[in-house]
């Protein structure tokens, strides 16, 4: 009944949504590298500009994207406070014992906050525009070279995709069992920690048994369909690169190059 919107995938069709998941993952890695390589506000500005372009292209509401930042607000504030007070700079505005506020400290903490916000926003853009299935497919495909060192890439991807499939089912089931026990007077909302932990037992045990039962039946159903691991197995769906991915690649490369050039020539380095 209840629809669990897993992760935060925002299901619309857009330029960014239709890009190959592998490229999006690589793009994210490049983008994060660029953010860390940036030593100046100019560098971050390049990243921010491109990110804004991506957000607009993705048709994900801007407000929704920035709401993501609220989740890390605490970390943002903590980092900036620590840096404002502890950063040793030359132009001192205020000081008391070992605490001081300096011009450099203020600038540096502003830099860090920008960096953090960029990191969180670009990562969430990946999950907003890529469904969990595409993500697993992408990761499996990117990890394929590891098969050479006998790393079980296929099995790992299968586990991930089965987990993704069963998480909503088990969440639904938890809700159902919880309701059934609530109907028998169980109380999950009040009492101290110990009482609350004990209250979970009547939910946990049926849930565990159900998960085992499901696993067993799924195992049988897979066996019955001749499953025997990744060897000899073929794959029906192949990920294909399109012109969108070529554009993405160029943009990603441009961002990294731009940031590296700024760094090498020390433009605006803090």
């Amino acid at each position: 009944m209840k629809d669990v919107s897993f992760g935060q995938y925002y299901p619309v069709s857009s330029f960014v949504h239709r890009m190959d998941p592998r490229l999006k993952i690589l793009f994210l890695i490049a983008f994060i590298t660029a953010i860390f390589l940036a030593t100046s506000f100019y560098g971050l500005a390049i990243c921010a500009g491109v990110l804004l372009l991506i957000i607009l292209l993705s048709r994900v509401p801007v407000g929704k994207v920035f709401r993501e930042i609220r989740g890390i607000l605490f970390i943002v504030i903590l980092t900036s406070v620590l840096n404002i007070f502890f950063y040793r700079g030359e132009t001192e505005y205020w000081s008391w014992k070992f605490l001081s506020i300096t011009r450099e400290g203020l600038i540096f903490s502003a830099f860090l906050v920008c960096r953090l916000i960029l990191l969180v926003t670009c990562s969430s853009m990946l999950t907003y525009t890529t469904s969990p299935v595409e993500l697993t497919d992408g990761i499996e495909s990117l990890l394929t070279p590891l098969k050479w060192i006998r790393f079980p890439v296929h099995e790992l991807a299968l586990i991930m995709s089965i987990a993704l499939r069963f998480i909503p089912i088990l969440m639904d089931e938890t809700e159902r069992i919880k309701n059934a026990q609530k109907a028998r007077g169980a109380d999950f909302e009040s009492g101290g920690l110990i009482k609350r932990i004990r209250a979970i037992v009547p939910v946990l045990i049926p849930l565990l048994l159900s998960a085992l039962r499901r696993a067993e039946e799924l195992g049988d159903a897979m066996d019955a369909r001749c499953y025997s691991g990744g060897r000899k197995r073929t794959k029906y769906k192949k990920l294909r690169l399109t012109w969108r991915d070529f554009v993405g690649f160029l943009v990603g490369a441009a961002v990294v190059t731009g940031v590296v050039l700024l760094r090498v020539y020390g433009v605006g380095t803090l």
């Binding site: 109907a183 009547p202 049926p206």
Partner: peptide, 13 residues
């Protein structure tokens, strides 16, 4: 108001 859900045996614990 007692409530017996579908397949109630799966809630035994």
């Amino acid at each position: 108001v007692g409530m017996v859900f579908q397949y109630p045996e799966y809630q035994l614990f």
